[in-house]
Design a protein around this nucleic acid. Structure first.
Length: 279
DNA sequence: AGTGAGGCCTGAAAGC
DNA sequence: TGCTTTCAGGCCTCAC
């Protein structure tokens, strides 16, 4: 599930409930993730106080007052649950439990493609997970000229390039399809055939699609503590993603239009697009 | 150097 | 119904 908007939503939720909380007890029931959780993870963070929660790309960073930070990534199937207290019966795949005085955070991840580790806060920027990352989609550095320079010599199609976190972070497989639809650019267009003008469009639409999702995710925050403790994820109203063989919203209004949204595989990932609307 | 395939895992859905 | 196969929204490593 998690792309940037989901992580941003969780960050907001955690910022409302975790600031200044003292970590009393930590249970690591599973340490085998994309990166192994350090064996002294619990010892390192217990008895520290949470200073702030940040996000970088799709990573959640919990900054502690003892010079360390917790780095968390949700992979494909990860969840952060916010509960009042540690439940007497844990769910399947509840892997790491972090208990504070009146709040309990649980990292649940069925496929274990995510991770939860600690790192010294002053070394975060040099961490191998962060070093290669490109700019955030909402920062000034990410603009049409930047994107144009980054991709002008690439011959790969544009869609896989948008998933490359060293070019731009936070865009996942769903939003890559959606933003290219909004920009009316075909996912199969080679990068070196994309004009500066089109790069501007891609930048604008990538921000739009993420903004909409964050806003909608934020609006579900009021009930982020559902009975089962799981966070309510934003169910995006996708225009092309998962809409194979349906008409796109623009073609729908054209009575003579018979072509449908196609599903193709690019670099091993599915892409959805309308060959009429997107050039 | 840049690119695509394979692999990490489990579970839901589709296929038989 | 029940077993098997396929597929999944991320990302890293490894060949070419």
């Amino acid at each position: 599930m998690p792309e940037l908007p989901e992580v941003e939503t969780i960050k907001t939720a955690l910022n409302k409930s975790l600031i200044n909380k003292k970590i009393k007890n930590v249970n690591v029931l599973q340490d085998k993730f994309r990166i192994k959780t350090q064996s002294d993870f619990a010892k390192r963070i217990e008895n520290s106080q949470i200073t702030k929660i940040k996000r970088r790309a799709k990573y959640l960073i919990i900054v502690l007052d003892n010079g360390y930070s917790i780095i968390n990534h949700l992979g494909m199937s990860g969840q952060i649950k916010i509960l009042k207290e540690k439940p007497s019966i844990l769910d399947k795949h509840d892997h790491i439990i972090i208990e504070c005085n009146d709040i309990c955070i649980i990292y649940n991840d069925a496929r274990r493609f995510g991770l939860m580790i600690y790192e010294k806060t002053n070394l975060l920027n040099e961490h191998k997970l962060f070093k290669h990352l490109g700019p955030e989609p909402f920062c000034d550095e990410y603009n049409g000229q930047y994107l144009f320079n980054k991709i002008k010599n690439k011959k790969s199609p544009i869609k896989p390039a948008l998933l490359d976190q060293s070019i731009i972070v936070g865009i996942g497989n769903i939003y890559a399809s959606e933003l290219l639809y909004d920009a009316k650019i075909s996912p199969i267009r080679p990068c070196n055939m994309i004009t500066l003008d089109e790069c501007n469009k891609i930048v604008i639409e990538s921000r739009h699609v993420l903004e909409r999702a964050i806003k909608a995710g934020g609006s579900t925050l009021k009930d982020y503590k559902k009975p089962d403790g799981s966070l309510g994820y934003f169910q995006n109203a996708h225009k092309v993603y998962g809409k194979e063989n349906q008409l796109c919203p623009i073609c729908k209004s054209n009575i003579n239009q018979k072509h449908c949204i196609k599903k193709i595989i690019q670099a091993g990932r599915s892409s959805f697009y309308c060959s009429i609307t997107q050039k």
